[in-house]
């Protein structure tokens, strides 16, 4: 292992330890888990979607909502705590490059979100599996075709969610490298998440012919600068197989997520190199 990689991993390790000890992480994790578990109780409010879909949507919603909040707020907090407490001064005075510092922060935060996604998707998978067993038995008695859920689809969905949150972390780190305050970073990071979730509108428009060259150029630029976060929300199709997703499409989305991460992280390190601490 190269010394540079070792230093990066040490930063990641300490970042991870710091993050998992935060009450904020535990709080959101508990909230997300409670949301997943409570979906079984709330299914009485369902209007015939199929119970598994209702439970899945509750879980996906929890993962999306709390995952997004966690990746924006926690990443910004982890970055600014180092700057405000002057820990960054101590670390960056050592033979540690700013790229190693920022990439280490990224992997530490991403690992924390990995724990979050694994725990919530594991819980959701467990709840759905248990309910599926009951529904299959009931459907067999009634002579109906039961709705089933796909465990491999759940795994793929969890992986895509993790990648989506990774993209969000890189965006927040890039903003942090530029920003002077925690609040500014959280606000801009949150807006970037919303814009990323709605980027598909421009993406869809780009795929259709447009009369105005200026409008076309604007749309093209929007789709190139903003990440498409909506493409990761294919939980329904993956887990419940309502419409099905080709394997190649999942791989393409995953690669797209990785491409965004590399791009934003590169920009983040460029910006951070010029920052005065």
């Amino acid at each position: 292992m190269t010394p540079s990689l070792q230093r990066t991993l040490w930063i990641s390790r300490v970042t991870f330890l710091e993050a998992v000890r935060q009450r904020f992480f535990a709080f959101l994790m508990v909230l997300g888990a409670a949301m997943v578990l409570s979906s079984v109780s709330f299914r009485v409010f369902d209007f015939g979607h199929g119970e598994l879909k209702f439970i899945a949507d509750f879980g996906f919603g929890g993962m999306f909502l709390f995952g997004s909040v966690l990746s924006v707020v926690m990443t910004a907090q982890l970055f600014f705590s180092e700057i405000d407490n002057k820990t960054a001064l101590t670390l960056l005075a050592k033979p540690l490059s700013r790229s190693e510092f920022l990439i280490g922060k990224f992997f530490g935060a991403w690992a924390v979100l990995g724990v979050f996604v694994v725990v919530l998707s594991g819980l959701l998978g467990g709840v759905m599996w248990a309910r599926e067993q009951e529904l299959v038995a009931m459907a067999e008695q009634a002579g109906k075709v039961p709705v089933t859920f796909s465990a491999s689809g759940m795994f793929q969905f969890a992986l895509l969610q993790w990648l989506r949150l990774g993209v969000v972390i890189t965006i927040v780190l890039t903003v942090s490298a530029l920003a002077r305050t925690f609040l500014f970073t959280v606000v801009v990071g949150s807006l970037a998440v919303v814009a990323g979730q709605l980027q598909w509108i421009a993406q869809d428009a780009v795929l259709k012919p447009t009369g105005s060259a200026l409008y076309g150029a604007f749309l093209w630029l929007s789709t190139r600068l903003l990440p498409n976060l909506q493409q990761f929300n294919i939980g329904d199709a993956l887990v419940l197989g309502a419409t099905g997703v080709p394997g190649e499409a999942v791989v393409e989305v995953a690669l797209s997520g990785l491409a965004y991460m590399v791009a934003y992280l590169f920009i983040g390190t460029l910006v951070f190199r010029r920052r005065e601490i």
Binding site: W200, I201, Q203, D204, V206, L207, T223, R224, L225, P227, N228, Q230, Q231, N233, I234, D236, A237, L238, T243, G244, V245, P246, E248, A249, V250, E252, V253, L255, S256, A259, Y260, V262, A263, Y264, F266, I267
Partner: peptide, 24 residues
């Protein structure tokens, strides 16, 4: 890198778009 990632996401979006009928 950013433009490349954006172009790549256009390809992946074309593939995955039919799986998200709820939107648009």
């Amino acid at each position: 890198l950013v433009v490349g990632a954006g172009a790549f996401s256009e390809i992946s979006w074309r593939s995955v778009r039919p799986s998200i009928p709820e939107i648009g």
